[in-house]
């Protein structure tokens, strides 16, 4: 029930948003929403806390920016290249990180992501602290000029919907059921004959790829790949978005991303106080609001 209403709200709001809000801002929200949904697939449904998702988000942004700018890739192919990069990186990170459990998993992903951050900082093509600037938006399939903001908007919204549907489908498939079984009781799932590590790795790769898709899209929207997108603080932000919206709920990360990103945007005039406020929200969420916004809605109206 709640989910059906939310589907309708999301589609209507998504289709009409550019007419009453600044399109670039909404596109930014959509990228973060997809990023948070991808992250939630891991933490919310498999119980794996990755503290390194910024590496996929930021890494893909740089790859997409580079292939479009230097090799003249068209936008769709460029974004695909970024997502592909995130997929490969996700396979490597996942392979290493699932060797340890729980809290170690978080520390390993964080440390691995730091390698990518330093590589971006030091490699010659990335522009160091200035980021990769001047990425052309180009023409979609050689036909639609993405410099028109409405065309760009609906392109981004379509990407978001594709990513969202992949996640929705994954969660509601037999594969997703196994993931949730692993979350509930890992040794039980193992004893039932499921190759737990393989399922974890597959979930990790899907999550990384979609996080990369979000980052790649963001780079095209802003025509800019920023160093901050690969910083661990971005990994922290996506955790906060998921937590605020509701861990393990389909729509939670979307709501959470909109809430947190809008808040950071509104408060950006206050400088470092934004960090203090985000930190405080983190603390409050962990202590008393662990279900998140959508989680509370489900508690009130039922369903998941």
């Amino acid at each position: 029930m709640v989910n059906r209403v939310l589907w309708i709200i999301m589609l209507v709001a998504g289709l009409t948003a550019p007419f009453f809000a600044y399109p670039v801002f909404v596109m930014d929200l959509l990228c973060f929403a997809l990023f948070a949904c991808a992250f939630n697939l891991l933490l919310g449904y498999v119980g794996l806390l990755s503290f390194g998702h910024a590496a996929f988000f930021g890494g893909a942004a740089y790859i997409t920016g580079y292939v479009i700018k230097a090799w003249g890739f068209p936008p769709l192919l460029g974004i695909a290249a970024g997502a592909l990069f995130a997929m490969v990186l996700g396979a490597v990170f996942g392979f290493l990180a699932i060797r340890r459990q729980g809290i170690y998993f978080a520390m390993i992903t964080l440390a691995l992501a730091q390698i990518i951050y330093f590589m971006i900082l030091q490699l010659p093509f990335t522009g160091g602290e200035n980021g990769l600037q001047g990425i052309p938006r180009g023409k979609l399939l050689g036909l639609v000029d993405l410099n028109q903001s409405l065309a760009m908007y609906y392109f981004v919204f379509a990407i978001f919907l594709v990513g969202f549907c992949i996640i929705y489908r994954t969660i509601n498939s037999p594969f997703g059921e196994v993931l949730q079984a692993i979350h509930e009781n890992e040794s039980r799932a193992l004893s039932l004959g499921y190759d737990v590590d393989r399922f974890k790795l597959q979930a990790f790769v899907i999550s990384a790829t979609l996080a990369g898709l979000a980052g790649a899209t963001k780079a095209v929207v802003f025509q800019f790949a920023a160093l901050t997108t690969a910083h661990w603080q971005t990994s922290g932000e996506v955790i906060l978005m998921t937590l605020v919206g509701g861990l393990g709920t389909v729509f939670g990360p979307v709501i959470g991303a909109i809430t947190v990103a809008s808040l950071s945007h509104e408060l950006s005039a206050f400088g470092s106080w934004v960090q203090v406020i985000l930190g405080a929200i983190f603390v409050v969420c962990v202590l008393v609001f662990r279900r998140g916004i959508i989680g509370e809605l489900h508690r009130l109206f039922g369903g998941r």
């Binding site: 922290g236 470092s272 106080w273 203090v276 985000l278 983190f282 962990v286």
Partner: peptide
């Protein structure tokens, strides 16, 4: 101490929030 009964990742998340608060305060 309110989090000991829960998954250990909540302890990490709480202390991450505290880190942001402290860093933000001093950055001001």
């Amino acid at each position: 101490k309110r989090l000991y009964e829960l998954d250990h990742i909540y302890g990490l998340l709480l202390t991450f929030g505290i880190t942001l608060i402290l860093q933000g305060l001093f950055s001001n």
